[in-house]
Design a protein around this nucleic acid. Structure first.
Length: 270
DNA sequence: CGACACACCTGGATGC
DNA sequence: TGCATCCAGGTGTGTC
């Protein structure tokens, strides 16, 4: 999936087209994605004005007075603003049609994404156990250090735990640990407070940078206006196994950690 | 509670 | 060219 920068880029891309607009129709081309699509999407959302588009972790929320549509892009999902008359392509699973004459169209080949409903005044169960936002004030080195005490899992796996901090996906976990000089296999509980401060700093820096660049482009991501992003050439380690480290020239290593492919420099990271 | 394996699904890359 | 195989950015669930 898109990682957090791609989701934030998507939010910023769709917000001007969606905010303040009234939903005229919700067109579902299938009745489920990762989970069944609740009836409320077709019974309650039409007629509602979208007050705001919020991102929480990698979820997007379209807030209305009657409740909120909860969207996730999964691993291969994308949203585009389109003219609803344009014929749907394969894997175009739903349209949220707006009174502006445009529509929000969701495409997701792997269907790991979801479309759910959050009632007014409630927090959807999927959002309840999430950790702090990596770009928010509640996230700092001390938080990570405290959360990691006694944890034997690899620090890379720990950073990808959404109850610890949200939005650090597989690419940026490798990249942030490289930037911080921390070996991804090190036990989370064995990383010092000082190094967590550094990791925190690098996560923020890299995520912010990726957002300014429109998110990392991988084959499944298309920005809301249809333009691809262009960040992949700037990755330091991700996807570069065997290639020279851009800092020291040593061959980048790769291996599976916590069932996810991981990349690191054996000389720069300890 | 933590750690881990597994599941969901399609398409692109790779290898024979 | 065709076909089999492997792999992919997420994350909820089930088991130990």
């Amino acid at each position: 999936m898109p990682e957090l920068p791609e989701v934030e880029t998507t939010r910023r891309g769709i917000a001007p087209f969606v905010t303040g607009r009234t939903v005229t129709r919700v067109l579902l081309r299938r009745k489920d994605l990762r989970w069944p699509i609740p009836r409320a999407l077709t019974t309650k959302l039409p007629g509602q004005r979208i007050e705001a588009v919020e991102r929480r972790a990698k979820y997007l929320l379209l807030h209305t007075e009657a409740g909120s549509a909860l969207l996730h892009l999964g691993m291969s999902g994308s949203l585009r603003i389109i003219d609803p008359d344009v014929a749907p392509r394969v894997h175009d699973h739903y349209d949220i049609v707006l009174d502006s004459g445009k529509a929000l169209r969701f495409n997701d080949p792997r269907r790991f994404g979801c479309l759910l409903w959050q009632k007014p005044g409630e927090v959807h169960p999927l959002l309840r156990e999430l950790g702090p936002e990596p770009l928010g004030d509640a996230f700092d080195g001390d938080w990570l250090w405290h959360a990691s005490r006694g944890r034997s899992a690899a620090v890379k796996t720990f950073l990808m735990d959404q109850s610890v901090v949200v939005g650090v996906g597989n690419i940026y976990a490798s990249e942030a640990l490289f930037a911080a000089g921390v070996h991804p296999k090190r036990a989370a509980g064995a990383v010092s407070r000082t190094r967590y401060a550094r990791i925190t700093h690098e996560i923020r820096r890299i995520l912010n940078y990726a957002i300014t660049r429109g998110g990392t482009t991988l084959r499944d991501f298309i920005a809301p206006d249809g333009a691809p992003g262009y960040f992949e050439r700037e990755l330091m380690v991700y996807g570069r196994a065997g290639e020279p480290c851009k800092t020291c020239g040593t061959a980048i290593r790769s291996g599976v950690i916590g069932q996810r492919m991981t990349y690191w420099c054996p000389r720069c990271q300890h």
